[in-house]
């Protein structure tokens, strides 16, 4: 079973809560995905508290772990303050730490990320860093106290699937004991299955489900794909071969003259 900062998690799908057509469809997608972890964000309250209260009621009905994020933060300072606000509000030490380095690509600012991760782990936060598959950055994050890593496989919302399978494979091999969750870039169930077959521990999705024609059904499709990929990994898959090898035994076949 997957363990994230001491919490045992059955589902290997983490689901974002943004961009759904309606709260009811979000709830249905969460239910169909069987996820146990959803991500949330923090923004300025504009409705005198009513905005947060309405969302609070919805989240309570979902009965899942909450993983707040620091989405949209471009500096260590912004990310740290947002993380502290999230900790105070959600009463959780978990924080999905995002420090964005580029407005267009939304790639992580890995130097700021490492700095922020160190500060937050020193304060007792349990950091889920949105990072790249760079091995040295990963080492620095682990040195900073991170016990989970969340590499992208393609830019956020791009729906391209793994752009660098070798890089992801290398990361898995270098950090066999660290839970690795692919965060960002997944577009289709087959993309999710592919990274799970590499031995990744889980996948975090949002846009691919929320913007699907039928988000609830897509959530179910992803759940099945992620399970299939994991089972395939655990079962031990055949390596590709360069030549054809018959599957039916050739010994004993009849000979026709």
């Amino acid at each position: 079973m997957l363990s994230l900062y001491g919490k045992n998690i059955s589902s290997r799908l983490l689901l974002g809560t943004a961009q759904y057509p309606s709260p009811a469809i979000l709830a249905e997608a969460v239910h169909n995905s069987a996820t146990e972890i959803i991500t949330l964000s923090l923004r300025r309250e504009t409705a005198g508290g009513k905005q947060g209260s309405r969302f609070q009621e919805l989240i309570k009905t979902l009965d899942v772990h909450v993983l707040p994020n620091t989405a949209g933060c471009f500096s260590v300072k912004e990310a740290i303050i947002t993380a502290r606000l999230a900790r105070d509000l959600f009463k959780t030490n978990w924080i999905k730490l995002e420090v964005i380095g580029n407005q267009d690509t939304l790639q992580p600012h890995v130097f700021a990320l490492v700095e922020a991760a160190k500060i937050l782990t020193d304060e007792g936060c349990e950091v889920f860093p949105y990072t790249t598959d760079d091995l040295i950055v990963a080492e620095k994050l682990i040195d900073s106290g991170c016990k989970v890593l969340m590499p992208w496989c393609a830019p956020i919302g791009s729906a391209k699937g793994a752009r660098d399978t070798d890089g992801l494979r290398s990361m898995r091999a270098h950090f066999p004991d660290i839970p690795l969750i692919v965060d960002a870039g997944i577009g289709r169930p087959s993309h999710a299955a592919a990274v799970m077959e590499l031995g990744y521990d889980a996948v975090l999705l949002n846009t691919a489900v929320a913007k699907a024609g039928n988000p609830a059904r897509m959530a179910e499709a992803f759940a099945q794909a992620i399970n299939a990929g994991r089972l395939g990994f655990e079962a031990g898959m055949l390596e590709p071969r360069d030549v054809a090898i018959p599957s039916t035994p050739v010994i004993g076949r009849a000979v026709f003259s």
Binding site: G16, T17, S41, L42, R43, E45, G49, G52, Q56, L89
Partner: peptide, 10 residues
């Protein structure tokens, strides 16, 4: 003063 509340996020 900043006053924030939860909202949907990825």
């Amino acid at each position: 003063i900043e006053i924030v509340s939860p909202m949907q996020g990825g």
